[in-house]
C-alpha cells in the first residue's frame, strides 16, 4: 500500500468518525456511529431459525452471505409492529461478523460534536444499558447506541 492511499484511508476513517446514522424506533431518535455500518437494505424475506432468542427474526441472504437479523424493537422490549415500506435493515459489522438490525425507519446522517454529547445517566432500566452517549442536536435528542454493548449478550462467553 502506498503512503498516499494509507493517508487517504486514514482520512476516510477520520471522515466517518463523529458521524452518526440516525433512525427511529417509534418516536425516539437513535444513532449508530457510521464506522460500524456496512449498508442499509430494505426488508426482505427472513428465514426463521428455531432456538434463538425472540428478538432474532432469523437469517437473510445478503448476496450469498448469510446474515442474522435482529429486530431492534424486540431487543428493546417494545411491542412488535408490522413491517412497512419504511422499515429498513441496517447491516452493521461487529467483531468481523455482519448483523442486520431492523428499525422502523432511517432518518439521516449527522455529525455530532463531542461537546454535544453527554454520558448516559447511571440508571437502571433496559434502554440505558445499550447507550454510549446522549446527544442534543438542533432540539433533537439522539440516543447513541454502542454496538459493543448492544450485542454483548449475544457474544459467546468463553
Amino acid at each position: 500500500m502506498s503512503v498516499e492511499s494509507i493517508i487517504k484511508d486514514e482520512n476516510a476513517v477520520e471522515d466517518l468518525r463523529g458521524r452518526f446514522l440516525t433512525f427511529f424506533i417509534g418516536e425516539t431518535y437513535y444513532g449508530i456511529e457510521l464506522l460500524n455500518i456496512i449498508e442499509i437494505i430494505s426488508v426482505q424475506p427472513i428465514t426463521y431459525v428455531p432456538g434463538l432468542p425472540i428478538y432474532f427474526k432469523g437469517i437473510i441472504n445478503l448476496r450469498g452471505k448469510v446474515v442474522p437479523i435482529i429486530d431492534v424493537r424486540l431487543k428493546f422490549c417494545k411491542p412488535e409492529r408490522a413491517y412497512d415500506e419504511k422499515t429498513c435493515i441496517i447491516v452493521v459489522m461487529i467483531q468481523d461478523m455482519q448483523v442486520g438490525l431492523i428499525v422502523d425507519s432511517v432518518a439521516e446522517v449527522i455529525s455530532i460534536e463531542d461537546a454535544q454529547k453527554s454520558d448516559p445517566p447511571e440508571l437502571g432500566g433496559n434502554g440505558e444499558r445499550y447507550l454510549s452517549s446522549i446527544a442534543k442536536v438542533d432540539d433533537k435528542i439522539i440516543l447513541n447506541i454502542s454496538c459493543e454493548k448492544f450485542f454483548q449478550s449475544d457474544f459467546r462467553t468463553y
Partner: peptide, 27 residues
C-alpha cells in the same frame, strides 16, 4: 450458520447449516 449465532448452538436442535435456494431464499 453465521458465526454470530455460535452462542445459541443451533446445531443441537438437529440443524447442520443452511443453504441458499434457487430463488435466493434460505433453507
Amino acid at each position: 450458520f453465521p458465526s454470530f449465532l455460535n452462542k445459541y448452538e443451533i446445531k443441537r436442535l438437529g440443524l447442520s447449516g443452511c443453504t441458499i435456494l434457487g430463488d435466493g431464499s434460505i433453507s
